[in-house]
């Protein structure tokens, strides 16, 4: 029974993700291949994602299109079942959905000059925090090289415990970059940390169709329900989640900070590893 309950709460946790903000017309989409080492002790534990960076002159949004698509399937499924009164059947499994990060990074310029980070990767909770620029103290190097068709320049920065080497191109002048990268004179083409745990690689660039509207999340009608917290609080939540994801999940879902969960017939260690896969190796170490 608990297993069923567990599946159910996972379903709900995904279902509640849909809340979004409109970001106006988008102009361009950069497609990144993002490689992440999920277990720092095992450099072969590689996760590969395709991520989109959509931007205009005022906003950018960086997200996983597959995760957004799965969210849309869930949303439409639930909406149909509410409408018809039929029981809701998950069109994709929680495991499939959780294989893709729900983290969304939105940059705002010139009005707010900050970024907003949304996440539902800590199962059961929906957090959002903001950070003001400047975040990166870019050191420009005179080195340049050709990556694909782009002539790229090198910049380096140390950011929250990781040393980043970034190659950007001034051919695409935008301050926005993938993840929290911001403030370079051109689009990031390649970025890698010195431990080689994270790698961002530009694999495609296209103009968005006329009238394309950028949004943070799929659902165009729901009010925002990501709880705004500080980054410090988020880091605390993250460490609690990594320590015991199942208990964190149940507490977040029930709102009861003393709730606990016992599961039978499931290898909890393995399940924990699966659930925390997308955040197990934090990109920010401080």
């Amino acid at each position: 029974m608990k297993k069923y309950l567990l599946t159910f709460v996972f379903a709900i946790s995904v279902a509640a993700v849909w809340a979004q903000a409109r970001l106006g017309k988008g102009e361009f989409r950069a497609v990144y291949r993002v490689e992440t080492v999920t277990d720092p002790a095992d450099t072969t534990s590689l996760r590969v994602d395709t991520m989109y960076l959509e931007f205009s002159s005022k906003h950018s949004v960086f997200y996983s299109p597959t995760r957004r698509y799965y969210d849309s399937l869930m949303y439409e499924g639930i909406r149909r079942s509410i409408k018809s009164g039929a029981s809701f059947q998950m069109p994709v499994s929680g495991e499939q959905i959780r294989a893709y990060t729900s983290a969304v990074v939105v940059h705002h310029y010139p009005n707010n000059k900050k970024l907003t980070f949304f996440t539902a990767d800590l199962l059961g909770a929906f957090w959002r925090y903001e950070e003001e620029y400047p975040l990166f103290d870019w050191q420009y190097r005179q080195e340049s090289k050709k990556i694909g068709n782009y002539t790229c320049q090198k910049a380096v920065a140390t950011f929250r415990g990781r040393q980043w080497e970034v190659w950007y191109t001034t051919d695409i002048p935008t301050p926005f970059g993938p993840w929290k990268f911001y403030g370079l004179p051109g689009l990031v083409v390649y970025a890698e940390d010195s431990l080689r745990h994270f790698r961002f690689e530009l694999i495609g660039f296209e103009r968005l169709p006329a009238g394309y509207e950028m949004v943070t999340h799929y659902d165009p009608s729901e009010p925002r329900n990501f709880v705004k917290i500080s980054r410090e609080r988020y880091l605390k939540e993250l460490s609690m989640f990594l320590e015991d994801p199942l208990t964190y999940h149940v507490r977040a879902m029930s709102g009861n900070s003393n709730a606990s969960i016992e599961v039978e017939g499931i290898d909890r260690k393995k399940l924990n590893k699966k659930i925390t896969k997308v955040v197990s190796n934090p990109i920010e170490l401080e």
């Binding site: 497609v31 590689l46 590969v48 694909g148 296209e206 103009r207």
Partner: peptide
């Protein structure tokens, strides 16, 4: 001159631990 678009080229084979994609 408009900005040049780049079509996404996905790696034909990716090796993730003991899974070959």
């Amino acid at each position: 001159f408009d900005i040049e678009e780049v079509k996404v080229e996905v790696a034909p084979v990716t090796i993730k631990k003991d899974t070959v994609v």
